[in-house]
Structures are given as C-alpha cells and as structure tokens.
Write a protein that binds this DNA or RNA. Structure first.
Length: 104
DNA sequence: CTGGTGACTTATC
DNA sequence: AGATAAGCCACCA
C-alpha cells in the first residue's frame, strides 16, 4: 500500500497510542514531523481509519472534545472510549490532564 | 500549476 | 462562552 512518508509516519504515531489514552490532532502532527499539519491528520483518518487497524477513536481535538460531524460515528467513538475507561465530563469533554497520551 | 479540501488551531472581539 | 476570521498544510484532481 503506497503512501507518502509523512502519511506513513502519522499512521505509525496513531497506532502507537496506548489503550486507555487519547491524543490530539496537533500532537500527532507534531510527532509525525510537522507541528502544523493537524488538518492533514484529519484527511488521513478519513482515508485509512476504516481500512487499517487504527485507534481512530483515541484522537480528539485540543480541548478533548469529539469533533466528528457524523452523529453515528461520534457516538461510536464515545462508546469505544468508555470501554477503555475514558469518560467524558458534563461538557462532553475528555480530561486531557488524566487521559492525554504523553510519549517519552 | 492551481485550487479545493478538512474530525484543526490560534487570535480577536 | 460563543462567533468569526485567518493561518496552516499534505494531498489530490
């Protein structure tokens, strides 16, 4: 499956997010080598999330909020996160202080 | 080459 | 807190 180096790196980073933790678009882009390519991460999820074994549900935006437009998918994401012990607060946000993935 | 895209982010008001 | 605008960028037709 041919893909550009940056894309491959992003996928690698996403796959390295551990169970029970979440990461953000900006952080993933940064780890992949380009701090400002958060939007590119979005495209990659669109293309590869359903085809590969990506923990796409462990990716949220900078505030810990699920930002998927499709109601069905966002609901699925929340359920998957809860299965991992990641609960949302009253505002529907994930506590990033507790659940944010901090790679060494 | 040009322009469009997007589940983002930051700055302002 | 919510709305708006602008910046940002890899990829693709």
């Amino acid at each position: 499956m041919p893909m550009t180096p940056f894309t491959a790196k992003v996928i690698e980073v996403i796959q390295s997010i551990p169970y029970g933790k979440v990461s953000t678009y900006g952080v993933i882009a940064s780890l992949a080598g380009n701090k400002r390519a958060a939007r590119q991460v979005v495209r990659i999820l669109h293309v590869y999330s359903r085809k590969m074994n990506l923990p796409w549900h462990r990716v949220v935006n900078r505030e810990g909020i699920i930002t998927i437009p499709d109601p069905m998918s966002s609901k699925e994401q929340q359920e998957l996160l809860e299965q991992e012990g990641i609960l949302l607060d009253a505002d529907g946000k994930i506590d990033l202080v507790t659940f944010a993935w901090k790679p060494h």
